[in-house]
């Protein structure tokens, strides 16, 4: 009798819980789980987006091995991610350190430093095209003082790196998260370090950095995800050029899905591989995080 009552209560609690999370649950099922499964299926077909997809098994996947453009797009994407993510972590850390200074007008500085990250990426991309203009751009005007002239977007050797630089304008968002983590570190640790005679650099490497590694892990995981899906900057600023130097995987997927004929099946297959790469990288980062992420243990 008592057991039955408890069981009914549990069931009612479960139903209430499910109803409470149902908006998220429905959204996830409709917008993530269903498209992912659908995409897995479409990746095994020849499909133009219209009519009935034609089953071709693993042909799309075997074609990837022969497709030099796919290889190039994957190389460009990995190159971008390997540069953008670590540089992004360093930039966010520097911004957080700057925003953590005890200055009277720090609120204003924080707003200025975080501002670019709240602007839409396409707006930043358009502005950045002017910033990077070889002759009139402010970047080259400053570098010109040191005798350096770079054709940022027109030279294949620099085009990818230009987009890496652009991605740093979004570092303010992570800078704020880093700042929150930084301010959560107990002042006692710094006081103790000061008593022991530690200088600023030692405090950073022995206290601040280790205490922030959980947040850095979050930044790296999210950053890698975004890095592997880099698209909009190249779509707006370079269209994949010059000479495919900025043809990223997501842009190549987009071109196949919407610009080239009858290639939605191939685009879906490439998306699935990108998804798989993303999952594997995330798992590897998680698995290896125990070697470098500080975890506070109780007792």
């Amino acid at each position: 009798m008592v057991n039955g009552l408890a069981s009914r209560k549990k069931r009612a609690a479960l139903i209430t819980g499910l109803v409470m999370i149902s908006p998220w649950l429905v959204n996830m099922l409709l917008m993530i789980v269903y498209p992912t499964l659908y995409n897995l299926g479409i990746g095994m077909t020849h499909y133009s987006g219209m009519g009935t997809p034609k089953w071709i098994g693993f042909d799309n996947y075997t074609f990837m091995f022969k497709d030099k453009l796919y290889g190039k797009s994957l190389y460009n994407t990995i190159y971008y991610t390997l540069l953008a993510v670590p540089i992004g972590v360093c930039t966010a850390m520097l911004l957080a350190l700057a925003m953590n200074r005890k200055l009277k007008e720090i609120a204003l500085y924080r707003a200025i430093l975080a501002l670019p990250s709240v602007l839409p990426l396409f707006a930043l991309a358009l502005v950045f095209m002017w910033v990077m203009n070889p002759r009139y751009g402010i970047l080259n005007i400053m570098l010109g003082l040191a005798g350096i002239h770079v054709d940022w977007l027109g030279d294949p050797r620099w085009a990818k790196f230009s987009l890496v630089l652009l991605s740093q304008l979004g570092a303010g968002q992570y800078g704020l998260i880093f700042l929150a983590a930084m301010r959560g570190i107990s002042p006692d640790l710094y006081d103790a370090a000061s008593i022991d005679g530690a200088n600023g650099i030692q405090k950073f490497w022995r206290i601040t950095f280790p205490m922030m590694t959980p947040i850095i892990l979050y930044d790296v995981i999210v950053g890698v995800g975004f890095g592997l899906q880099v698209f909009m900057q190249a779509y707006i600023m370079t269209q994949g050029g010059p000479a495919n130097a900025t043809m990223f995987n997501a842009l190549y997927i987009y071109n196949n899905a919407f610009r080239y004929g009858s290639s939605i099946g191939y685009a879906a297959a490439m998306s699935n591989v990108l998804f798989f790469i993303n999952v594997v990288v995330a798992v590897v980062i998680f698995k290896t995080s125990k070697y470098w992420v500080y975890e506070e243990t109780n007792g």
């Binding site: 095209m129 002759r135 009139y136 002239h149 027109g154 030279d155 600023m237 370079t238 269209q239 010059p242």
Partner: peptide, 12 residues
């Protein structure tokens, strides 16, 4: 020539 193009005939 590429730099001239990036300067005076940029994308968009």
């Amino acid at each position: 020539l590429a730099t001239w193009k990036s300067t005076y005939y940029p994308q968009d």
